[in-house]
């Protein structure tokens, strides 16, 4: 019977933190389809693993699973990119090229598309982008972020500092009045 209540807890937890989970997935993977699939995978994994959930911060536990599902997808994506032959296959080459706005911007309205902050955030390496999203947008504490990333708090702090510096530098170097030059 413990299992029944745990499952109910996981279902409730997943639905309550679905926006947070999707937001993380969306920023990591860049598009709606992949982010949705990753979050759905994460829910299935969480539901199967509900017996092993041992208390602690539930949101961090679920987001850690979401993040692992996203990283698995990213790993596959990087592998596919590496293996693609560009010669004589323009379509594949197109897919393998780093994608700018099109990758992410489909459903963004023009105002958000103009936002330099969002654009530079998208341009940051994954490790800095995820920590900034978790801290500044999702407002997780250092401890929760450390649990999600499964890293020491010191690493969270150094990545956060570095990510902020990079983003701040990108914004001040390029000035908010200049038109974006695609990262």
């Amino acid at each position: 019977m413990i299992s029944t209540s745990n499952r109910a807890v996981v279902d409730e937890l997943a639905l309550r933190h679905l926006d947070a989970a999707y937001n993380l997935g969306r920023w990591l993977l860049g598009n709606e389809q992949d982010a949705s699939d990753a979050v759905h995978d994460a829910y299935l994994r969480a539901a199967r693993a509900c017996d092993t959930y041992a208390g602690g911060n539930a949101r961090a536990w679920f987001l850690a699973i979401v993040r692992n599902c996203c990283l698995a997808r990213l790993a596959v994506r990087h592998k596919e990119k590496k293996n693609v032959a560009i010669d004589g296959n323009p379509a594949a080459a197109e897919r393998a090229m780093p994608q700018g706005d099109d990758d992410v911007g489909d459903s963004l309205d023009s105002e958000q598309r103009r936002s330099l902050v969002a654009q530079y955030l998208r341009g940051l390496p994954d490790v800095y982008r995820e920590v900034l999203v978790l801290r500044e947008i999702e407002e997780l504490s250092y401890r929760e972020i450390a649990d999600v990333l499964e890293t020491p708090i010191g690493t969270v702090m150094s990545r956060l500092a570095r990510g902020r510096t990079l983003l701040h530098k990108a914004l001040t170097d390029n000035g908010p009045t200049e038109p974006p030059h695609g990262l």
């Binding site: 999707y22 937001n23 936002s115 902050v117 969002a118 955030l121 900034l132 500044e136 947008i137 983003l167």
Partner: peptide, 16 residues
């Protein structure tokens, strides 16, 4: 800037 301009994506209804 991040909170106002970087969108927080809400889960699509289809995912829910």
């Amino acid at each position: 800037a991040l909170r106002h301009e970087a969108p927080r994506f809400d889960a699509p209804g289809a995912l829910r």
